[in-house]
Design a protein around this nucleic acid. Sequence first.
DNA 1: CACCATGTTCCTTG
DNA 2: CCAAGGAACATGGT
Length: 282
Amino acid sequence: MPELPEVEILARHLAPLLLGKTIRAVEVRRAKVLRPTSVKQLEKKLVGAKFIQLRRRGKYLLFDLKKKGEGQFTCLGHLGMTGRMFLQPHGAGLPKHAALILDLGKLRFVYEDTRYFGRFTLDTTSVESLGPEPSSADFTVAGFALALKRSAQPVKVKLLDQSLVAGVGNIYASEALFRAKISPRRAARSLKREEVQRLHEQIRVVLQEAIDSGSTIPLDFAGEKTKDRLFYFGRAANAPDYYEERLLVYDRSGKPCPTCRTPIKRLVQAARSTFYCARCQR
DNA sequence: CACCATGTTCCTTG
DNA sequence: CCAAGGAACATGGT
């Protein structure tokens, strides 16, 4: 489930379910996801604590908790590539790769992650190095331009740098560049002011549209029936029963560019796939 | 068997 | 200190 929009949708889904609930017990099935926190440290801190707020920063979830008579503290969650978080009744089947289970009384919170790349930890230092939130006023064209100027890397690769702007991942990097009509191969520092401006705007637009789209779809957070690929489809305006593909270039190599019909190309940069239209993107 | 996958972090080199 | 490149992490789908 993981770029900024997916995490935002998850945060909105979980917040009302978690707030006010108290953790009765903690079960850690894969201690690796707590790193560098130990099982003991997590248990000691979480058992008896109540959720008081849930925030998102970049692709991270920040769970604010508090125990009676003690100070507030924060737990950090990240979904890695394959993580999910959801609530379920006790007795419901646990997924094969359940990494952490929090007993909330009537319900339990499950963090499962097939590849265990994600985290659920007391160490919140990762958020310190994040760049501005793309939707906030802190994400300025001037600041973005300045950061791009310092890099000789291809702009697509640079967009994945979370210190530049927080939350853009491999899918939306390709999508934003397509919409801004900029080639993913361009050196970050070579972009003209107008191009930086277009890219800045399209990053904001593509992420916001994804959040809006995700909000209207009945998502299956537990992932038992459907796959979360569903998230990448938008509800078609006039046909309520099927989902129209929403991504314009990602994972569409060989398919026609939505603008000019030229086949979409796939390129490997920094060991990640990039998709683009060689005709529309210069 | 081969290659691919929504991400971050660590290590090395310059 | 910074930028950049590459491997590592781990499991599953095609």
